[in-house]
């Protein structure tokens, strides 16, 4: 099933997802610069997939810290599309950075040789977590903070691997929907090839986010914006022309993936439990 924004009636606020890209870029650049430097780092490391999110993230890191302090890491698996690596290197070069290349095939294959029956979700999750472990190793080796690439759409839908691509120190794009990131990518003049191709996690041959999710980013972003940011009720969403089943499906996805967006639960025993009544900002003393 594919929902499109064309199904919405005239009451849907036009351009509700429009953002001022120059303003957003300035805030995100300051965010990366300050949050990296206040913890004593000068560099950022970014997993560069060839997709739009990591390209925009790297562009922001370059603006914030300088290309010489941005470390893109290209981590293909042998089944990854060659076009992805080509696009990743195109982005890295355009931004004046020198990418590191780490082929993750040996470590993935070494594990799944013992689990040949593993389905592609397990394999995809494992790849995301291997990439995370490489980024965190480079974080220590290079003195660079891991800058993540998760956007608001995938965070809300739970369309990411917990402790995989969802693990990082900073997330500049986490409050931007996918369609807003397209606008930002154009503003940042990133390569057309990266902006125009269909979004894909590239965990297996021919994977497409929108095919896998079952709806288009344009449609789900509008709905999430109305549901989350505008706090519209179910009847209001219905009146705006959203399909009830689609609304229900998306609400369930957001609810059921809440655990991915929270730290692990701690069994409460004392009067001062971490994150419950022991509440300090992360920037404590900084």
């Amino acid at each position: 099933m594919t929902e499109t924004a064309a199904g919405l009636n005239d009451d849907a606020p036009p351009g509700a997802l429009a953002v001022d890209c120059a303003l957003v870029t300035e805030i995100l650049t300051g965010f990366v610069r300050e949050e990296v430097r206040k913890v004593g780092f000068e560099r950022g490391v970014v997993g560069l997939s060839g997709g739009i999110d990591s390209a925009v993230t790297l562009a922001v890191v370059c603006r914030a810290l300088g290309p010489e302090n941005a470390i893109p890491v290209v981590m293909p698996y042998r089944a990854s599309s060659p076009a992805s690596e080509r696009d990743a290197r195109l982005v890295a070069a355009q931004l004046g950075t020198t990418p590191l290349g780490v082929d993750i095939s040996p470590q993935i294959d070494a594990y799944f040789d013992r689990h040949p029956d593993a389905d592609r979700t397990r394999r995809g999750n494992k790849m995301a977590r291997e990439r995370m472990s490489i980024l965190y190793d480079l974080s220590l080796a290079r003195g660079a903070l891991v800058v993540g690439t998760s956007n608001k759409t995938e965070l809300l839908l739970g369309y990411g691997t917990i402790y995989g691509d969802m693990a990082h120190a900073l997330n500049p794009l986490g409050d931007l929907y996918k369609t807003q990131i397209f606008a930002l990518a154009r503003h940042l003049e990133l390569p057309t090839a990266v902006i125009e191709k269909a979004p894909s996690a590239d965990l297996w041959e021919g994977q497409s986010d929108e095919d896998e999710l079952g709806f288009e980013y344009a449609a789900v972003d509008q709905l999430l914006h109305q549901m989350i940011d505008e706090r519209r009720t179910r009847p209001e969403l219905h009146a705006l022309g959203y399909d009830d089943a689609f609304v229900k499906q998306i609400h369930r996805r957001v609810r059921d993936s809440q655990y991915k967006r929270r730290p692990p639960l701690i069994a409460k025993l004392s009067n001062r439990t971490i994150d419950r009544d022991f509440r300090y900002p992360r920037d404590w003393g900084r």
Binding site: L17, V19, D20, A22, L23, V24
Partner: peptide, 11 residues
């Protein structure tokens, strides 16, 4: 705290 990026060049 700055927020609201959808209404022109100012927050």
């Amino acid at each position: 705290p700055g927020r609201g990026v959808g209404h022109g060049s100012e927050l």
